[in-house]
């Protein structure tokens, strides 16, 4: 029984710039794992590689024991591996409920499934999840009119609507009002505990990630620098140096 997500020695370069080199990351089912590192250390590139946004140069990626590094973005997403974006992305011209409904997993790829109407269950689920993130009152508003923080919550609830097994979150607290951060952390933990969604989180806010994650990987200069429990990472000399800019 191997890990839910198994990234093995992945490398990726853009032209001459090496963004990732020999990175191995394992995420077990049910965990919350953190991914930290200074700006430009290759965290988002690793996310993009995992979800199939671009082909990787070397290494292999397995999800639920199946190899996914040759698949495209939608195929991987349909396997139950979803990501959110650092620059929050929602469907700005549609209402919150519509954003939620279209995020429901599609029953098959046939034309019938594509043209099907929404089910009662989907509509109820959308309402529940919007309530879960506290957006129920705003469900009929145009999503593009929401504040940035609310859009972030909406994007998160859209991901939940899809019912993924593993969710990659790219800086969920960036740009959010500090008073709302605790609430968001609570939601993330409940999503993990109640809905059984495994989380892999990129985060710059150390207080958040140290409290949230059970294990943390630290990247620097495109390579894996350290791995361990939050307490170990906090004490790790190399991690501190990397964040303070020493080499």
């Amino acid at each position: 029984m191997s890990a839910l997500l198994d990234v093995r020695a992945v490398g990726k370069a853009f032209g001459g710039v090496v963004a990732n080199r020999g990175i191995s990351v394992q995420v077990e089912e049910g965990e919350i794992v953190g991914l930290i590192g200074p700006n430009g250390s290759g965290k988002t590139t690793l996310f993009n590689s995992i979800v199939g946004h671009h082909p990787i140069d070397e290494g292999e990626i397995y999800f639920d024991n199946g190899r996914i590094d040759k698949l495209g973005v939608p195929e991987i997403a349909r396997l139950g591996l979803l990501r959110t974006f650092q620059q929050t992305r929602i469907y700005g011209g549609m209402t919150c409920v519509q954003n939620m409904l279209i995020s429901a997993p599609q029953q098959g790829l046939g034309v019938a499934a594509m043209l099907a109407p929404h089910t009662r269950a989907e509509e109820e689920r959308a309402g529940e999840l919007l309530d879960f993130v506290g957006l129920y009152e705003k469900r009929h508003l145009i999503a593009g009119d929401l504040s940035f923080g609310q859009q972030k919550l909406l994007e998160f609830s859209m991901a939940l609507m899809n019912g993924p097994r593993l969710l990659l979150l790219d800086e969920p607290t960036a740009g959010i009002n500090p008073t709302l951060i605790n609430g968001l952390m609570d939601r993330l933990q409940r999503a993990n505990a109640e809905f059984g969604i495994t989380l892999l989180v990129i985060e710059h806010n150390m207080r958040v990630i140290m409290n949230l994650a059970q294990r943390i990987y630290c990247l620097a200069h495109g390579e894996l620098l350290a791995e361990g429990a939050p307490s170990e990472i906090r004490e790790d000399r190399r991690v501190i140096d990397a964040y303070l800019g020493a080499t």
Partner: peptide, 9 residues
């Protein structure tokens, strides 16, 4: 791109 990332074909 968001639609793709959400698994829409």
């Amino acid at each position: 791109q968001k639609a793709e990332a959400m698994g829409l074909p």
